[in-house]
């Protein structure tokens, strides 16, 4: 067993437990995006950052990949952590403003304005689809390709993979593409805050709770009157 301090509380977890699992177990909320219980932790989205250590040696680590250590002092909601998370979210929102998951997370973190240019990317490179394909579906049909700004996810040579069984796991788990899969024009995507009276996805059941908190609206960029 490993003893460490979580937000000032002395806690005990089994060896090998990650900080995220410990925080979840003891009821401290840590937002995640690229983490999924059935998949190996990846540390891509950096949303789950927590602060470890004390004083000038305190540092931010991704809790999903950091195993608990004896005597560690962990803070899951310090000012520094919250500021870092907010920044990460603002950047994620800029690259993928049409994602409901990211919109909800942004609103929960009190982001009301969009500071960065919106890119309408299809993908935030969280690797969830790659991991579900490999670890749960045992297929390995899709993977990362290239690197740097040309990095993308897909099959080798962009042709239909012989390994793919069309299970749909990648679409199911994707936090960024719910709208991409049903609607391909982000500027017309569901919003509710703007004056678009006929949002194209409203009639579809899965979007009934869709609400945009942004001003200007992150999806349609129409300024609220």
């Amino acid at each position: 067993m490993t003893n460490f301090t979580l937000n000032g509380l002395n806690v005990q977890v089994e060896e090998g437990t990650t900080l995220l699992e410990a925080a979840k177990f003891y009821g401290f909320p840590v937002p995640t995006l690229c983490y999924h219980e059935g998949l190996s932790p990846y540390g891509a989205c950096r949303l789950c950052v927590v602060e470890i250590g004390e004083g000038p040696r305190a540092k931010l680590v991704s809790s999903c990949t950091y195993p608990a250590e004896e005597g560690l002092k962990v803070r899951t909601a310090s000012t520094r952590v919250l500021r870092a998370r907010k920044m990460v979210l603002e950047l994620l929102l800029a690259s993928c403003p049409q994602s409901k998951v990211i919109q909800d997370l942004a609103s929960a973190h009190d982001i009301r304005r969009q500071r960065f240019k919106q890119e309408y990317e299809d993908c935030i490179m969280c690797g969830l689809c790659v991991r579900i394909c490999e670890e749960q579906m045992m297929a390995k049909a899709i993977g990362f390709r290239n690197r740097g700004e040309r990095r993308s996810i897909g099959t080798p040579f962009d042709i239909k993979s012989e390994e793919c069984r069309l299970c749909g796991g990648c679409i199911y788990i994707c936090p960024a593409c719910q709208l991409r899969c049903t609607y391909t024009e982000p500027e017309k995507a569901i919003c509710g805050a703007c004056a678009n009276l006929a949002p194209p996805c409203v009639e579809k059941e899965q979007f009934d709770d869709m609400m945009c908190y942004m001003d200007p609206c992150v999806a349609c960029e129409i300024e609220k009157k």
């Binding site: 390995k140 049909a141 993977g143 990362f144 390709r145 290239n146 690197r147 080798p156 040579f157 390994e163």
Partner: peptide, 12 residues
Amino acid sequence: ASMVDVYAVATF
């Protein structure tokens, strides 16, 4: 190794 892995290395 799977084709995905080899392709990832070859494009990286």
